[in-house]
Design a protein around this nucleic acid. Structure first.
Lengths: 222, 222
DNA sequence: ATTACTTATTTTGTATGCAAAATGAGCGCT
DNA sequence: AGCGCTCATTTTGCATACAAAATAAGTAAT
């Protein structure tokens, strides 16, 4: 029997850590990634580091320049559009599947998360709100029970998050988003997969608008 | 100016070659991939080889076993279902976008490819048929003009192709598939994005059925 | 000063070396 | 025979070493 031996290896850690550095801006988009710097940062030799870089390039976080190492991929406005478009249909699919497969405890859990999120909204706790928001979408993915979908989603979500951190949500958008989430919950409860799918897609399209505008103004977009 | 210097490096070649070996069955699903073997096969040292392996693991072709190297990922029936489900919505999206953006020359090109494909069908030239079929879907993706979508699609298409090679299409399914393609073409010509999307998704769902059955009977599925 | 050229330095790409872990062969035991 | 043990062999993981390419620095000519 194939045992899923998942002790996090050095390789996995490096991949995660570098991803994190890209996310928090320590490694800026478009910036070259000198191996020397990272080896000193992590205290490892170049071999495992380079392996991690190739893995990250394969997932789209970095890009390889022949004989010039790697650099952090830039997130252009066009790419953000593309990302959201794809994410939209993945969200929709997760909704369709989740509505079909959700058990009562599943729905109860989403509901609980939702009300917790609303609580953070009323208190204007932005970070906690975002965190719960993310957990709800993850939970829906979990209910959907499609491993490939989960994987694609997370990869794309990461790439979007890289752009999103500049987006400061406005008060009006925020309350609209909460209202949209109310509708999502209702659709899930009535197990209306198609509706849930459409709502999720539209919800994401709205957030896309916000991010796009932020990107256009930002200097990193080029 | 960021020049897209795309001379295919050793790394890229290794990735492509190993992918090919997985596709044509030289490296069977579930099989361990000894580094020694591949270094001799390609005449390179372990370092660039390992980098390629990490990249392939990141894209899902191989999986990493801590301290035991890599093995070719198995394509289970469940995974095929998941893959097709995701591919379905990606196809649908490509259809929606393509219908929206297609120029007249674009449509003419798809049309030409289509009739060429039908020709191969009437002559029962299976390989040529498959080839044209693939080119049509690629062309639609190209028209859709979403790079992320293109990328995701190709990655998943590869993973499916690994399973599909066992599937021997039946005569009835084949003619149904051709009919479905007629409808696709019609939807594209009338630029009905939603319809094209649905048709593409259904078309893929049908092929999924065939592949699933083949997988279930095949010994590689486990 | 600016440009072109030459040379030193850094950085990347690949090969090799060594230690730790895993695999496999032999061997005694029940 | 089947099971567990020890030890040799193989394989993997990481570090280092060296060559080729790119970058930076300096110098001479206009």
């Amino acid at each position: 029997m194939p045992n899923d031996n998942h002790v996090s290896s050095l390789h996995d850690n490096l991949v995660r850590d570098i991803r994190e550095m890209v996310l928090d801006g320590t490694l800026a988009p478009g910036q070259r990634v000198p191996e020397r710097f990272l080896t000193e940062q992590f205290g490892v030799s170049r071999t495992p580091l380079r392996e991690a870089i190739r893995a990250l390039a394969s997932e789209g976080t970095l890009e390889l320049l022949p004989n010039r190492g790697a650099r952090v991929t830039k997130v252009s406005a066009k790419e953000v559009d593309d990302l959201f478009e794809v994410m939209g249909v993945l969200e929709a699919l997760s909704g369709e599947l989740a509505a079909k497969k959700a058990t009562n405890p599943d729905i109860a859990e989403v509901k609980a998360l939702h009300y917790q999120m609303v609580l953070h909204f009323t208190r204007r706790e932005l970070i906690a709100y975002f965190h719960l928001n993310q957990r709800i979408h993850e939970k829906i993915l979990e209910i959907a029970g499609n491993d490939i979908l989960m994987n694609m989603y997370q990869t794309l979500a990461f790439r979007i998050r890289r752009a999103r951190y500049v987006a400061n949500i406005s008060e009006t958008r925020w309350s609209t988003a909460v209202k949209e989430h109310e509708e999502l919950l209702a659709a899930l409860e009535s197990r209306d997969g198609e509706k849930l799918g459409h709502l999720l897609r539209r919800h994401l399209a709205n957030t896309c608008e916000i991010v796009r505008k932020a990107i256009e103004d930002s200097p990193t977009s080029h």
